[in-house]
Design a protein around this nucleic acid. Structure first.
Ligand SMILES: NC(=O)c1ccc[n+]([C@@H]2O[C@H](COP(=O)([O-])OP(=O)(O)OC[C@H]3O[C@@H](n4cnc5c(N)ncnc54)[C@H](O)[C@@H]3O)[C@@H](O)[C@H]2O)c1
Ligand SMILES: NC(=O)c1ccc[n+]([C@@H]2O[C@H](COP(=O)([O-])OP(=O)(O)OC[C@H]3O[C@@H](n4cnc5c(N)ncnc54)[C@H](O)[C@@H]3O)[C@@H](O)[C@H]2O)c1
Lengths: 219, 219
DNA sequence: CGGAAGTCGTTAAAGATTTCACATACTTCA
DNA sequence: TGAAGTATGTGAAATCTTTAACGACTTCCG
């Protein structure tokens, strides 16, 4: 358990999986070296930001050369724990849940949805995307030591399920419901609020007109 | 077209739809007034941040009282253009696209997916969630003056479709593919990268251990 | 009516993130 | 080998965001 890198800015941490994915692409394409400028074009992040991000991990590149793709990739593989798979549970096998199960974040990922739960009797016992669907009543019993959950139940059920997940020892929840759930401070919740993302995009289009000099940006 | 409020911080703008949703909830529950502290508990945003956010729009509350729910709601309804519906197109009726069509962001939303496109002959002509699916070849012809698109095609097709959308006059794209697409600077792209969100959550769990004093936070 | 309690709006401070700009050091090629 | 070119890593500045703190005003209640 190395807790020595707690000092990496959160904004940087959120970009690491993105860098990793594109480095993987480059590697697959057989590229041997890459500059922060090239990477910048690919991931749409300012090149100075990329260099700054990398620099938190020490001197990964070479002046006048750039970065060695293979080296950088293997460095991030370790940093992002790509070698060990994090097991994930999904609660709520409806529209969204089914989409996620079918996809299962298979490509260059260190995560795998291993078990799903639903309340609808008709779904219990079936498999979706190769993942078995269990009854929500068996949550505590079958969750085992899984520490991450994806929440795609109706928002009215969200807080109740979250409480049970917490009791069952979960550490992190990726919450797709519009409900803002309450959890103890030692549990991490990331909200992904798709309706809000759409509304926010519309708001920005109306109120933040882009002119020719602006550059589109992210998240 | 009022461009007078371009000065509202982006961080604030992203929270507006969230505030709006919870104000709607309160209103439905028949609540007449609300304090920044109460709202803070509900949306999990610091109460000082809420007051600061609201203050960009002027003095919306009353000292010693809080905010009048009805008034605040109607103010945000105007500000977020809740009275006019923004028409949206969805490209790629696969796992994710189908989920979105079935959901269609119906609740308290000013957006509506009006048309969908896919390349798969079997889907053309069908309806999903009440939305007709057209052939992607007819994109330019049938898009009309729709200005926002949701992109849920395979990542290999993303850039090509984006180029066509731009040519067809789109203003904003909500991109769910892992591809970082390039568009002219007068088009706005928001990336929602679900695989990265999951990986980032796992990374944070490993490297940013929460202790009892921390508070969970948001995107 | 008057004092206690409550809550906003805002100033100022702190914190986080991005961006600029350049000295430095490596690479390349003749 | 040496000169020209390239691209890093980082100090410093700029920008953006959050948080603390409190004066001013309102409500509430005895
Ligand atoms: N589908 C979308 O595009 C979309 C977009 C934005 C937000 N959301 C949110 O995501 C969530 C899921 O959306 P959806 O469209 O997949 O809904 P859905 O109704 O299709 O699926 C919900 C699933 O949860 C199951 N469920 C209900 N109560 C449960 C419980 N107590 N325990 C376990 N399972 C239970 C249901 O049987 C159902 O299968 C909702 O909160 C929705 O607001 C969805
Ligand atoms: N499903 C998920 O949970 C998930 C998670 C993260 C990211 N994504 C991304 O979202 C995107 C969609 O994922 P999905 O699971 O729905 O994929 P999918 O394969 O189920 O759906 C893609 C759809 O796009 C259609 N399509 C293909 N080429 C097209 C073209 N040129 N024009 C129009 N339509 C075309 C296909 O016919 C198909 O219906 C992918 O880029 C994927 O990487 C999906």
């Amino acid at each position: 358990m190395d807790i020595e890198q707690t000092k990496i800015p959160q904004a940087t941490a959120k970009r690491l999986p993105l860098y990793y994915r594109f480095l993987n692409n480059l590697h697959t394409q057989g590229k041997l070296r890459v500059s922060s400028k090239e990477l910048s074009d690919a991931v749409k992040v300012d090149s100075a930001t990329i260099r700054r991000d990398f620099s938190y991990f020490g001197a990964l590149g070479k002046k006048g050369y750039g970065y060695n793709v293979e080296y950088l990739l293997s460095f991030f593989r370790k940093t992002l724990d790509q070698d060990e798979t994090t097991r994930v549970a999904l609660i709520g096998v409806g529209n969204l849940g089914t989409a996620f199960l079918n996809y299962n974040f298979t490509k260059n990922n260190n995560t795998k949805i291993e078990i799903a739960f639903d309340a609808n009797e008709e779904r219990i016992g079936s498999e979706v995307g190769g993942v078995g669907v269990e009854h929500i009543d068996d949550l505590e019993e079958k969750l085992g030591d899984i520490s991450v959950a994806i929440l795609t139940v109706p928002s009215s059920a969200a807080q109740g399920i979250a409480d049970r997940l917490v009791k069952a020892g979960i550490s992190g929840i990726l919450n797709f419901t519009p409900a803002r759930i309450s959890v103890p401070s030692n549990v991490r919740v990331h909200h992904i609020d798709l309706a809000i993302e759409l509304q926010a995009l519309v708001y920005f289009l109306k109120h933040y007109p882009l002119n020719e000099d602006d550059v589109e940006e992210d998240q």
